[in-house]
Design a protein around this nucleic acid. Structure first.
Lengths: 353, 353
DNA sequence: TCCTTTATGCAAGGACATTTCATAAAGAAT
DNA sequence: ATTCTTTATGAAATGTCCTTGCATAAAGGA
């Protein structure tokens, strides 16, 4: 699936590296790029850029558009223009739960093109099967008009502990899936890379990429509700933990009593939350803390209570915010996970210094 | 200081990359390597290896030894033999405290060649100045017989919070150094890269590299004593935190009361420690927990108490051990930090897939 | 002394990248 | 309409680096 690089002993490595650089330049650029523009941006010589563009166009990664000579101050011979074909394949983000299966279809840049949801009443968790998941994913793809498109990667949020390989280790809400290799089964049927991750962790990833803590290097995200859990971003990357169980702080007594919060007690709740988080904040020293949950007009009071408590215990109190992401956070995180994989595989990581 | 790589548009990149591969092969190999052996190991063609070896020898990174034809089953023309000149420069590890300044001098592989200690009674912390530090480091280098050698990097453990750039942010034990840019001042005088890090964090690094949790991907290390603090290894790397204050869990009430533990109360102490660590273990899901401190024959009782408490709260209880590293842990961590920098700069990171 | 084995020396050939000079296509000026 | 200026493309020459393949060197064993 991933695109391999030749070894350093093969001169073809240079061509591959340059092709990547150029593809990445087009990927990163919102507007169109001209040949001469790429030469200037990358510092690579024109003949090389030209050859790479030809190869990339042949492989359908990019396409050449007709030259544009319109516009006022445009002097000289019109430049050849190119664009990244972000519709070349798709990414899938998936939120698996007992109340809904939510599927997001995105282009390779991560822009969501279509959303599809299948709702359940939550009383029959055994409805959630590999077959049902496949059915809804395929329905979503068909609705989006991408039947037959290549799926570059799929990121799935699952309510439970999942190993790095994608095997369900344990789940309180859907115990019948324990032991199932979700990643392998979905991967085989959909013929793509499937990444399965704890749902709270995926929501954390979404928070980091497009939410309140956008681009902070290290973030603690706390999900409140029936059960409290958390997720950690460390150095810009999601922390999975040794068993894939990082973030499961719901078992803590200090936080457990606060289940099912009443809005009247929001200050008390905030105090408990702050005290519970203090250990984590002191240990990790994050840049930001984000709280996910429904607080309506009590938001300010909650934040104040949490901040006060953190101030009491911590050396450095991070920024504390309430999440603005809604019910689509987990699936959005799935799209990000898939997009990360796509960029790693296809565009390559930054060059090792 | 660091060795830069040409851009991918320069064919010389290949040569640099191959030179690195070959240098790393010699660095990683304990015994001597022959030319033909390197060819087989790396897969690079012989003429290329030959050219790279010649360049590396010219730059004094490696040296050629006389061919060795002795030995029983050694048939054929004797191979040319090469070795990495691990004495080409040195690494320095430093432990700065109010009771001692400990300096470790190591070769570029991280093997400690010499230790030097300057003891203080702890009552006059203002003794610890940049000038005094320099004096002891220079004394250590001279004693080790490496006067004039190039220092590739120095890693310093400091009792306080230090920014990533090396500026002392706060320190309870040596408050007079607050605001001092330790890294910059030492770097200028010693003409080398200086990395300053919290001392507990450096001890954590040492624990990860040569201690009880050797090579675990994620580790929580707890330092007990007058003041409790911790360090985290995440994905094999030390967690600094946004302000460089990661691990300062000593401010927690649940842990604070346990200061100055009496050995009689070791079970009670272990329970408090386990309860305090539970939040961290649940959040991070580490592979191992290591406890540093003096417990003598009470060790087993302490471990049992901590484990019991962790079992009560956690989903997955990590392995819990007591540290075997002694008073030299911080300086050892400094050597590792310096060694990491050396390997990154000189040998390069693994090639980005 | 000759054969086998292991290793080095050297030349030929191919892939890439860069620089340089010539040509093409547009707007602006005469 | 023609010419000039600007911007961009086309194509050839040159050099670096790597690999393959053949010849040579240096050891032990028969």
């Amino acid at each position: 699936m991933s695109i391999k690089l030749p070894s350093p002993s093969d001169p073809a490595l240079l061509r591959s590296l340059n092709r990547r650089t150029i593809l990445r330049t087009l990927f990163d650029s919102d507007s169109l790029e001209t040949l001469a523009g790429i030469v200037k941006k990358t510092g690579v010589s024109r003949p090389t850029v030209e050859a790479s563009l030809a190869e990339l166009a042949e492989q359908k990664w990019i396409e050449e558009l007709s030259p544009d000579s319109s516009g006022p101050g445009r002097l000289g011979r019109p430049a050849r223009r190119f664009r990244f074909r972000n519709e070349f394949g798709i990414l899938v983000g998936l939120d698996l739960g007992i109340h809904k299966i939510l599927v997001k279809i995105a282009d390779t840049r991560g822009t969501v093109l279509h959303e599809h949801v299948y709702r359940m009443d939550g009383t029959s968790p055994e409805q959630l099967t590999v077959g049902k998941i496949l059915e809804e994913v395929r329905a979503a793809i068909n609705e989006s008009g991408h039947r037959g498109s290549r799926i570059w990667a799929m990121g799935c949020g699952f309510p439970g502990v999942v190993t790095a390989a994608g095997v369900v280790q344990r789940s309180v809400v859907v115990p019948h899936l324990t032991g199932v290799n979700l990643a392998a089964e979905l991967s085989e049927q959909l013929n793509t890379v499937v990444l399965v991750e704890n749902d709270a962790n995926l929501a954390t990833l979404a928070e980091h990429r497009e939410g309140a803590s956008h681009d902070a290097r290290s973030v603690v995200v706390v999900k409140t509700g029936r059960r409290i859990s958390s997720g950690l971003i460390i150095n810009g990357a999601l922390l999975r933990g040794h068993h894939g169980a990082a973030g499961e702080i719901g078992a803590l007594p200090i936080l457990r009593w606060a289940e099912a919060p009443k809005l009247k007690d929001v200050v008390e709740y905030g105090q408990a939350l702050g005290a519970g988080l203090a250990a984590l904040v002191l240990a990790v020293d994050p840049e930001a803390v984000v709280i996910q949950g429904e607080f309506k007009d009590q938001e300010a009071a909650l934040l104040a209570a949490v901040r006060t408590e953190l101030d009491r215990f911590c050396i450095y109190t991070p920024s504390v915010q309430v999440s603005k992401l809604g019910a689509g956070a987990v699936a959005a995180g799935g799209v990000h996970l898939a997009g990360d994989r796509f960029r790693t595989d296809v565009l390559g990581l930054s060059f090792a210094q």
